[in-house]
Design a protein around this nucleic acid. Structure first.
Lengths: 204, 204
DNA sequence: TAAAAAATCATCCTTTTGGGTGACTATCGG
DNA sequence: CCGATAGTCACCCAAAAGGATGATTTTTTA
């Protein structure tokens, strides 16, 4: 497995080099160091890293959050903020840019390692849970009349896009049985269709 | 709006009181302090807080991650780890328990504030994004034949559980038009049904 | 062990979707 | 001005899904 390549965006050279040292020590590869917004954007485009460490308070008219927004919109890679004196307004903007994590300055080697690992892990989680599974307990928590195991299995299958016939085959029962389960699901969820059911439980 | 109530789980009294001071200073309410796992569980059940600050390295045979797992499974509240000397194995377990955030010790007032705010915000985001919106650009990034604006609007409506007739009414066109759009969507997404379309784009 | 709940299947009928095809109009870029 | 693209609509037919009702068999549980 090849190394994870990280871009550091930090206008203070001493800190930047410091971080670079830490990262290479613990076996990450630093794809580049950008001291300005423009350098960062250039690096992103021409030498795309796997993750970005991003100083919020760049000494530039466009700050780190500006870069964050671009990363969020155009690239699919996680970025972690390095924050020091984040005022409330800056913090608000930062939060909305969907960062994978934060590391609060002043930080030592351990902080960077922990923050980075955790952020990367979380991001990976988000990416790989391509089929976010439904949870029976979570769903039933919200229902007066809880779903039975069988009904839940059917709901799962609906959620995954299966037809009634496919479910019947997979579960070794007749389509009529599936339809009965579905009718009961609709009653309990108070919806009129499979798509409505999906929309309703999606966030549960 | 009432104060956010926070439970502190920390076996070192000096640190615990320290954190309590910080939190009350910045207008959070500390619902309680637990020095042991049992105390923590008791507090959770009988005086349920809105969030938990959780020391990973409790001096107990059951550590903070044990509590984290219970919180994750039984309560819907966010928890933030206070970590100091997290070894790799502990870190691995911690990551899997789905924390809302981390704060690395030694921390000062600013760290706690920033970590807590961010964690709570992220958690709130997760909870409230009941209808995660689809993104045309994200979807088109993955398609050979990109969706048109109109097709995307229809896909959105499908995603929200609408019927063809409802869409037609809402968009002031005939059901036939909607059906044409849907047929084209299926071609481009390479799916045979609305539920399959939903399942396919859900994670995009 | 008797009652309740869950799972199974059927039948009839209606509505919604999906597939295929053709056509008209508006817009935009060369 | 022409061709490509997008948006609109129609008609036909087939397949899938939904609504209502009743019934039988397991399984659970009080």
């Amino acid at each position: 497995m090849s190394q994870i390549r990280i871009l550091i965006v930090e206008d203070e050279p001493l800190i930047a080099v410091d971080i670079e040292q830490v990262l290479t020590d613990i076996n990450y590869e630093v794809s580049g160091i950008a001291f300005t917004v423009d350098e960062a954007l250039h690096q992103l485009q021409h030498n795309t890293p796997d993750a970005v460490l991003l100083d919020i308070n760049l000494d530039d008219e466009k700050d780190g959050i500006y870069i964050a927004e671009i990363i969020h919109q155009q690239y699919q890679i996680p970025f972690i903020f390095l924050t020091s004196h984040a005022d409330r307004h800056t913090l608000d903007r930062a939060k909305k840019s969907n960062p994978a994590g934060y590391i609060v300055k002043p930080f030592d080697e351990k902080d960077v390692l922990a923050g980075l690992e955790i952020a990367l892990y979380n991001h990976a989680q988000k990416q790989t849970q391509s089929q976010p599974k439904l949870s029976l307990t979570n769903i039933n928590k919200k229902l007066r009349h809880p779903l039975t195991d069988r009904e839940f299995a059917v709901l799962q299958a609906i959620y995954e896009g299966q037809t009634n016939q496919q479910m019947a085959n997979a579960m070794f029962v007749s389509v009529n049985t599936i339809k009965t389960h579905i009718a009961n699901i609709y009653l309990k969820l108070d919806v009129p269709s499979r798509t409505a059911a999906i929309a309703k439980v999606r966030s549960w």
